[in-house]
Write a protein that binds this DNA or RNA. Structure first.
Lengths: 211, 211
DNA sequence: GTCATCATGTAAGCCGTTACATGATTGC
DNA sequence: GCAATCATGTAACGGCTTACATGATGAC
């Protein structure tokens, strides 16, 4: 899910570095606020290793090229030495500590499309919300499928919650919780119905997958 | 969170075994549906080790006592042998495979009260919903505190989401998501306000912590 | 005889968290 | 000189999931 958010952000907003990605995640979309560096940076490293992202040099001075050629030592202290060397080499781009700016690759765009389309994990509301937020990168039929898949999941959920509501053994507090939950699910379904309607009456509204 | 649910269920519904607990979690309260055995059984074992639960013998035949005295071997095959021995010893209570029925202890009731009261983790809706569902085991002031703490958290959240709503860079899909989210949070706050009102106008409605 | 249901558990892994380590730059 | 902000990472752990292993019983 984090991967999807990162790729989507890089696709829509262009090249960003980790710290900035986190900020945009925090106050850009409400979903996925509070994502921590401890998960963000490893995710970026993973995506880079998978070829979905590449780190770009931001107005790097010429001698940084040599720093790049320092082979990985495998030892911690060695890596630190490399980092220090890079700093000395002048990777500081405009006064701040050297930042690693990422660009999405074609592989990354494919990964993004796959994550957006695949049915797995779209059952929870966060994952669905994230997908819908990036829905303009989806072709119209896939978009409709996403909405209808979610609607079906919520329908099932509603049936379960309604069954729970009939339970005699619930006291007033438990009942209030179940009742509120049922209302919430109903509201979500209504919302989805509106979205599905809009999608069907104006099929060309969203941008196609490749504008 | 699982611990809270287990203890609450055992406190309200009396002695249960793992399989049954899962069923009641599934279709009793809508929250925490889909909890898997892979988390449930270790949780029960943990709670038992902590003294919060104790396994009770359900009409056990006399020779089961000897099976109980087999010391733990530490080896997997050894443990399996013990299990087989127990089966042979006649632990099967009424036709089915031997089931381990748990009873909550006084320590468990204390743990339950602590989990219910402690502020940590009550920020997400599932945790809050679970706590509220068990709110009748709380004294009136603690109940009010729970509701108001949650209200404050949602207020903060609303401010964030509203800030995100003002973002120009959102397309219609992302905007729909943010808008719907904001509405949802507002609705939750209204609901909480009702609950808080009810709580304040009828302070003695719920059962006290120890009836 | 084999399938569904009841019943308990272990092992591996995923996805995230907090806490820690490091360090440059800016402003007071 | 010291705190705040920017910036990148590692280590350890938490809580949950899936998949696996095991086995009794009843129904067909």
């Amino acid at each position: 899910m984090l991967d999807l958010a990162i790729l989507g952000l890089l696709e829509e907003r262009g090249n960003l570095h980790g710290y900035e990605i986190r900020k945009q995640l925090r106050d850009g979309l409400g979903l996925l606020a509070n994502v921590s560096f401890g998960s963000l940076y490893p995710a970026l490293a993973r995506l880079e290793a998978a070829g979905a992202l590449e780190a770009i040099e931001t107005s790097t001075p010429p001698d940084a090229a040599t720093a790049e050629q320092v082979p990985p030592t495998g030892s911690l202290s060695g890596e630190r030495a490399v980092l220090r060397a890079r700093h000395r080499a002048g990777r500081r781009t405009h006064g701040r500590r050297s930042r690693k700016v990422y660009r999405i690759t074609d592989v990354g765009r494919e990964t993004f499309a796959a994550l957006l389309t695949q049915p797995g994990g779209a059952d929870d509301s966060r994952s669905f919300g994230l997908r819908l937020a990036f829905a303009r990168h989806l072709a119209a039929p896939a978009r409709l499928a996403l909405l209808e898949h979610r609607r079906a999941a919520l329908s099932e959920r509603l049936a379960e919650v309604r069954a729970a509501r009939g339970d005699r053994a619930l006291d007033s507090y438990a009942r209030a919780v179940v009742e509120h939950m049922a209302d919430g699910v109903e509201r979500d379904i209504d919302w989805l119905d509106h979205l599905i309607d809009a999608e069907q009456s104006a099929p060309g509204r969203g941008a196609p997958a490749r504008p």
